[in-house]
Amino acid sequence: MSAPAKIALKGLAKRFGQKVVLDGVDLEVAEGESLVVIGGSGTGKSVLLKCIIGLLRPEAGEVRIDGQETRRMSAAERKAQMAKFGMLFQGAALFDSLPVWENVAFGLLRAQRMKKRAAREIAIEKLSRVGLDAAVAELYPAELSGGMKKRVGLARAIAAEPEIIFFDEPTTGLDPIMSDVINNLIVECVRDLGATTITITHDMVSARKIAHNIAMLHDGRIIWHGPKEAIDRSGNPYVDQFIHGRAEGPIKMAVRAG
């Protein structure tokens, strides 16, 4: 028996009111693996990440991190667990009231109680890691472009050198060149940190670049899961329709939400 998977989900279910979003998701991610979850808009990809990280509470199922079931954890255990995670949010979710360097160093200053000077040095180093120079450190998030915000968000996610990093649509809203820059940064950062990552996206270029394995979420379930090289011959009509971006096929896009 090999070591337990870094992240293991079993029968994960989540609903909002009447609407079932996740309907029994089973998924395993090995240590150091980069998994990309693809799926249409509104299929619950973000909800999946938020259930794993503990921002949302699933109604049923298990989430195991390093073999430990998270739902029965005490507050202190949960806090220790959270220190393993880093997350890049879709809109970067930078704190508007703080300059860039304090955004990047936020976890170091607050959770780890690091001294300001030391935290600032690490922040500037992480910023250079994502290709931003020290002058950016003093700016406020409102002064940054979309691509720069994503980079700062990435620097913040890796600042505490987490074991697990989640990327929520890292390239959405960026031009193709900036998307490629972000993809490269993700690949490099993950390789250097040796982190386990889950990325959710509907950008297939990005998925092919980042992923070791790809899983497709549809109707609240994982309908396909395999290495990225196999995705073009999945034999699954849903996957085929998605990766080729066809309007016709078994996936019917709901025109109205809800």
Partner: peptide
């Protein structure tokens, strides 16, 4: 409210900071 809808509150949690405390 803006922090909520732009996921800044979720970001606080992922940075091990309790939004109530902060």
């Amino acid at each position: 409210g803006t922090m909520r809808v732009t996921e800044q509150i979720d970001a606080l949690v992922t940075l091990s900071t309790d939004p109530f405390k902060y």
